Each structure stands twice: as C-alpha cells, then as structure tokens.
Computed example of a mutant assay.
Amino acid sequence: MLKVDGVSKRFGGIKALDNVSVELEKDTIVGLMGPNGSGKTTLFNIISGILKPDKGTIVFNNTKIDGLAPNKIATLGISRTFQEIRLINDLTVLENTMISALQHFKMDYNKAAEHSLKALETVGLEKKSEWFVRDLNLYEKKLIEMARAIAAMPKLILVDEIMAGLTEEEQSRVARIMNELREYGITIFWIEHVIRAMFKLLKVDKIIVLNWGKKLAEGSPEEILHNKEVIEAYLGKSSMRGG
C-alpha cells in the first residue's frame, strides 16, 4: 500500500532522516517509535507532502507521491492528525470537522456537514457538534483531529502522538476507535511515546523504531519489546548494565 524507499532529509548540517525505508500493508496498524529527535514527525511530513525528501521515493497505491502537494496527496487517500492540535477555537466542532471535506472534495456545505457528522459519530462527538471548540477539553479536541482525518475519506491515516496528555481511560477509548478504523478498511501509521498504548491497547501488526534518523529496528511488538538496541536507544547502555 505504502512504500517509502531510501528517504533522506537534511536540515542544514543535521541529517533528520538517513536512507529510511518503510512498507505498510493494507488494513494494518503500524507503530512508529523512537526517542525525541529521531525523525518520526519528519517522516510523516514527507509522506504527507509538507516536506520534500532530498533523496528517495514514496509510492502509495502504485502512485509516486514524493514531491506532490499536500492537498493532492490528501485526495489520493492519505490524511493525518498533528501532535500540536490545529483547530479553530471560534468555530464549532462540526465546522472544524467540515474543513477537511470542503478543502479536499469541494462538497457543497450541506453535503460536507452530513459527511462530517458521520465522522463525528465515529469518534463519539456527534452530540457536541454545535459546541465551540474553545469549550472542549484536550481529549475532545484530539477526537476532533481524528474526526477531521476521517472526514477526508482516507485509505491511510498518519496519527501523530494522539495519546499524549490523556488519562488511561481516554487512551483506551481512542484505542478502540483506532482498532475500529482498521476494521473499516483504514490503514493506520501511528507515532506514539505512550508505551502502554503501543504495546497493550491496540492490535499493532508491527512496530518500526527510528534513532538518529535511521531505522533501528522493525518487528512485532514482542520482538521490539525485547530488542536490546531499542532498549539501549531509550534507556542508555548504563541502564542495560544495571547501573
């Protein structure tokens, strides 16, 4: 479904990504982990068209997408959420969700509203569709981000640290939504630092770990959990030695 082949990206003297290759199959949930600054969000920005790679190619459903504009990539079926919530506080929940449908599919207002309300139903926010975003809590705002991604009618959603700042119960609810999306035929590529969510809450098919811009490891959750290089990247050599 998605093939990232040998992608590299520099910012001045800093190599954010170094020859990274990733493959995602349809109807899977793939986790993306790594310490801060390892290149995870840079990879998402390149896949979604916000950044262009210096080297490498990206193919989505047999279409080469590296270098395409973000709106073109969105119409091909890739949507995303952002680590920093990007909502308009003075618009309602429904209006914020409609932005995606209006931008990418040029629907008329009524059709976009109907389509976006279905997305809000998917995340359980339909009863607050007329609330202003400024009156919602963090959890509800993150659900709007997810609903907006769903409203773009994607085949693949890039989810960037949606669990951060949520309670364990809220994390469990978000996990149920993401598991359901996979059942609906939507593939999920998911950056996360909340270890409990990555290894216990979702049915993750595989996890990819980046470190210093390079792919450090790839495998099942069980394999990653016991990978010595991954443990060292997160905890350091001294922790592995017990002192």
Rank of each mutant, 00 (worst) to 15 (best):
L2G: 02
D5C: 06
K9Q: 05
K9H: 05
F11D: 02
G12E: 08
K15P: 05
L17D: 10
L17A: 01
L17Q: 02
N19F: 12
V20A: 00
K26C: 03
D27I: 05
T28L: 09
I29R: 08
M33V: 11
G34H: 13
G34N: 14
S38M: 08
G39Y: 15
T41P: 08
F44I: 07
I46G: 10
I47T: 12
S48K: 05
I50S: 12
D54H: 14
K55C: 10
K55E: 15
V59M: 05
F60I: 02
T63S: 11
K64H: 01
I65M: 08
D66I: 01
D66A: 12
A69G: 03
N71L: 14
I73G: 00
G77N: 09
S79H: 11
Q83M: 06
D90Q: 13
D90P: 06
T92G: 14
L94P: 11
S100L: 06
L102F: 05
D108V: 07
D108F: 07
Y109A: 15
N110D: 15
A112F: 15
A112R: 15
E114G: 11
H115L: 09
S116F: 10
A119W: 07
E121L: 09
E121T: 06
V123H: 07
L125Q: 09
E126R: 07
E126G: 00
K127V: 03
K127D: 13
K128N: 13
K128A: 13
S129Q: 12
E130P: 01
E130V: 01
E130L: 14
W131N: 14
V133T: 14
R134G: 00
L136Q: 10
Y139A: 15
E140D: 15
E140H: 14
K142W: 04
M146L: 14
M146Y: 07
A149Y: 04
A151L: 03
A151H: 00
L156I: 08
L156R: 01
I157Y: 11
L158H: 02
V159L: 13
E161D: 07
M163V: 00
M163I: 01
A164K: 02
A164H: 01
T167D: 12
T167W: 11
Q171Y: 05
V174C: 12
A175M: 01
R176D: 09
I177S: 02
E180P: 03
E183L: 13
E183C: 02
E183F: 07
I188V: 14
F189G: 04
W190K: 00
E192T: 07
R196Y: 08
F199P: 10
K200C: 11
K200D: 13
L201I: 04
L202G: 05
L202K: 00
K203T: 07
D205H: 01
I207T: 10
N211L: 09
W212C: 03
W212S: 08
W212H: 09
G213T: 04
K215C: 02
K215P: 02
L216C: 10
L216D: 10
E218C: 06
E222I: 06
E223A: 10
I224R: 12
I224M: 06
N227T: 02
N227Q: 05
K228G: 00
I231R: 03
A233G: 00
Y234M: 13
L235G: 02
G236E: 03
S238L: 08
M240Y: 04
